[in-house]
Nucleic acid binder design. Structure first.
Lengths: 236, 236
DNA sequence: TAGATTGTTAATCGATTAACAATC
DNA sequence: TAGATTGTTAATCGATTAACAATC
């Protein structure tokens, strides 16, 4: 009896794993880039494109493009290629652009301001709901149409407003504390610009660290080693 | 005669390739992270560390650490481990921190200001020499101790001041033109924050694109797919 | 139908991990 | 010397590329 349950358990686990559609990180990290290029093609009025042509534009192999898209089921049609708009929409969906995610930006220094000013979030279906800072001259004001709250209010605000994403543009020293607050308030993703790696215990929170300094160093390495025309893309 | 020259050519090419010390991109991209962690260890007063302990701290395998460092020759000592300060210094050297690179920031919006304000550059041995913008209210002023020139002066300035790195925080529309100017003025590396991929023809220039939007999208994907505690690191 | 191009399997390549001999 | 830990080779794993049958 016991051993049958065990075997059943193993099978169920296997099934669950397999329909988890385990897509490799390598593929995931390429999705935003596909999305950008397809957006450009739409602007240019292109209706369809083959993996061969897209591969030339993007500087990757056609094989890789077809493999990548096939991780998520067929987006194309034999003999025709891919419908640009459809593919663009599908990848956008995969990336969660249609989920209506809501974000707060914590830390309104120059970087926080820069992020609050671009259209980066709205263009990707993420709504910035509020800004947070501790500086008395900022708290209570509006910036670019967003209200600035004191960071004391962060926990309650996120609880009450169903916030999915917290953007950390605070100084290194307060990053860990803010991350903790956000995670306890139920936020699901942290976009971390503080120059340190967060150790969030809550296993429901995922952290995306942005290390601009690392990017600069990689560029310096390239300059030093005099790489022939190299184009690096930052990602993850 | 011709065929002998041909063969000779092939051999010379092979030799040149082999002493190019071809280090994989995967390794290069990990170097800044090693450097950061070693910096932390120095702050903590650690004098030596084994690959085993470092692997625990950084969440990678000890094998990988030893392989990575060995791409550049032995930095450690059997039975002892690695001298933290020495290793930190060596990796810094590899990354070009001691090269005395000089940079200009072009585009003094919020992002340009953010970069001009952090100590990111000086901490990595890169000197910011000047800022550039086209806005009349900025041109001729100083920002955070750096002089702001009109972008018209970019070409001459870079020529005359031996600038290695150009930071592009200009709007998308002007990015391509600024990149061209910088590359013609002899700049060796472009750090591109404009939300587009540059096509620089000059094969002596390397471009590092920073796509913050891609990073945000990757985070959204993670949130959507409800990845169990995942920590992504942005890089290249 | 013939031509084009995907979806998908097989082959290759490269990167990571494991193992262990060298050596401090 | 014995113990520790690297440097390095071999084994494994995963990702990319090539090839081609399926099919629009």
């Amino acid at each position: 009896m016991e051993s049958i349950d065990k075997i059943k358990g193993i099978y169920e686990k296997k099934a669950a794993e397999s329909d988890k559609t385990e897509v490799s990180n390598a593929v995931i990290r390429r999705l935003p880039r596909y999305h950008r290029y397809l957006g450009e093609l739409i602007k240019e009025g292109r209706l369809r494109i083959s993996s061969a042509e897209l591969s030339k534009i993007m500087g990757v192999t056609a094989s890789q493009i077809r493999q990548d898209f096939n991780c998520f089921g067929g987006f194309g049609q034999q003999g025709y290629g891919y419908n640009v708009k459809y593919l663009h929409a599908k990848i956008g969906e995969l990336l969660g652009m249609a989920e209506g995610y809501r974000a707060v930006i914590v830390g309104l220094g120059n970087l926080g301001k820069a992020l609050a000013t671009t259209h980066m979030f709205e263009r990707r279906g993420v709504e910035v709901v509020a800004l947070f800072d501790v500086k008395p001259e900022l708290v209570g004001t509006d910036y670019n149409g967003f209200h600035v709250y004191h960071t004391d209010k962060l926990f309650d605000f996120c609880r009450e407003n169903n916030i999915h994403i917290g953007v950390l543009t605070v100084p290194k020293e307060s990053a860990e504390k803010v991350a903790m607050t956000l995670s306890e308030a139920g936020v699901k993703g942290l976009w971390n610009f503080a120059n340190m790696e967060l150790t969030v215990k809550d296993s429901n929170v995922i952290v995306q660290n942005v290390h601009l300094g690392d990017s600069l160093m990689t560029l310096c390495f390239g300059v030093k080693s005099g790489k022939e025309k190299g184009i690096f893309d930052d990602q993850i």
